[in-house]
Simulated assay, not measured.
Amino acid sequence: MGIGGTLVVACVALLADAAVGYPDRLFRMVGHPVTWIGALIGRLDRQLNPDTGRPSLPDRRRRLNGVLALVLLAGLPTLLAWVLQRACLAMLPHAVGLVLLGVVAGSLSAQRSLFTHVRDVLHALEQGGIDAGRQAVSRIVGRDPQSLDAPAIVRAAIESLAENFSDGVVAPLLWCAVLGLPGMVFYKAVNTADSMIGHLSPRHAAFGWASARLDDLVNLPASRLSAGWLVLAAVVTQAASPRAALTTVLRDAGRHRSPNAGWPEAAMAGALGLRLAGPRSYGGCIVEDAWMGDGRADASPSDLRRALRLYRRACTIQGVALLALAAMLCG
């Protein structure tokens, strides 16, 4: 399948996700592709990375086992996606096969669900106060919720919106546009592995090393692209500054502890006139991260509402760009 076909699949995926997302009833019946990948990661973690209750492994062995686990957890789902793609295109009319692949790929995009989860934080904070806001934001961030006051809850939700716009929306569609369904599945497998085992805990620092490094690599182009979409979205969003967004990206993105998360977070911070990131508490430990932006730290629910508006326009701009590119190459 050429680039024209992969772009069509990406466009259908974007439209399917925006229209219906992943139905809750379907999730209750069969789960979700990411939960299937997560189950495989959990099994490999238990088998190849024994915890402290079993014979200890040296870090060198854990790192090698982590590489093996990454090959298996990325390779097997990607192979299945490749077989499915070949079968659809061989057994169905070409256009029908592309649409079917796009609908399947739509389940791996988080455009609709990300908006819903962040909007839930806004509603919880406005209707239930700080305790409800803490509970809602704890579903989308890993930091200690009890350490968050109202402005910190809003900042955490906006940071999650920015970062997940890159790795939950832009990156999957980018890999789909380039490599079709197998590319999208490969990306989601790597990204899910990083979220589950790619952190610096005593158990996973060595075992998850390969997953974390590969995740940094596969997210690199999308993080820059997502910052660009947010800057462009600020042009057409009231009370957002595209100039400040671009300036903040160029100045602050490289100061983030993540090589990728700083790009969309800096763009969002600059566009909204806020300060994001900064020191945060995870599991009782303070992570001294740099601030993104030089605006206000006392974010309010109205800022979260503006962030959601900016996010929706960035998604729209990305969709228009994909559709235009597909029309140009397929026309």
Rank of each mutant, 00 (worst) to 15 (best):
N164Q: 01
N164H: 01
N164R: 04
F165H: 02
F165V: 09
S166F: 13
S166W: 10
S166N: 10
D167Q: 02
D167W: 06
V169G: 08
V169D: 10
V170N: 13
V170L: 14
V170P: 06
V170Q: 12
V170F: 10
A171V: 08
A171P: 00
A171C: 09
A171W: 04
P172H: 04
P172G: 06
L173Y: 10
L173N: 09
L173G: 08
L174N: 07
L174W: 09
W175R: 07
W175A: 04
W175Y: 13
C176P: 02
C176E: 14
C176N: 10
A177P: 00
V178H: 05
L179D: 01
L179F: 14
G180H: 09
L181D: 07
L181A: 06
L181Q: 09
P182R: 13
P182G: 06
P182E: 06
G183E: 06
M184V: 00
F186Q: 02
F186W: 14
F186Y: 08
F186N: 06
Y187Q: 07
Y187L: 09
Y187R: 06
Y187W: 12
A189I: 09
V190H: 07
N191L: 15
N191M: 09
T192I: 08
T192A: 11
D194S: 05
S195V: 02
M196N: 13
M196H: 11
M196E: 07
I197C: 02
I197E: 00
I197A: 03
H199G: 06
H199C: 13
H199P: 08
L200H: 00
L200T: 01
S201W: 01
P202Y: 01
P202I: 04
P202F: 07
R203F: 05
R203G: 00
R203K: 15
H204V: 11
H204W: 05
A206R: 10
A206N: 03
A206K: 04
F207T: 01
F207P: 00
W209L: 15
W209T: 08
W209M: 08
A210S: 15
A210H: 14
S211L: 00
S211V: 02
S211N: 15
S211M: 11
A212E: 13
R213V: 01
R213S: 14
D215E: 07
D216K: 10
L217G: 06
L217P: 02
V218T: 06
N219G: 05
N219E: 02
L220S: 13
P221W: 04
A222T: 05
A222F: 12
L225E: 14
L225R: 02
S226F: 12
S226L: 11
A227C: 13
G228Q: 05
G228E: 10
W229S: 13
W229C: 14
W229H: 13
L230K: 04
L230C: 14
L232M: 14
L232V: 04
L232C: 15
L232E: 00
A233R: 10
A233F: 09
A233K: 09
A233V: 01
A234W: 07
A234N: 07
V235H: 11
V235D: 05
T237C: 12
T237I: 12
T237G: 08
A239W: 10
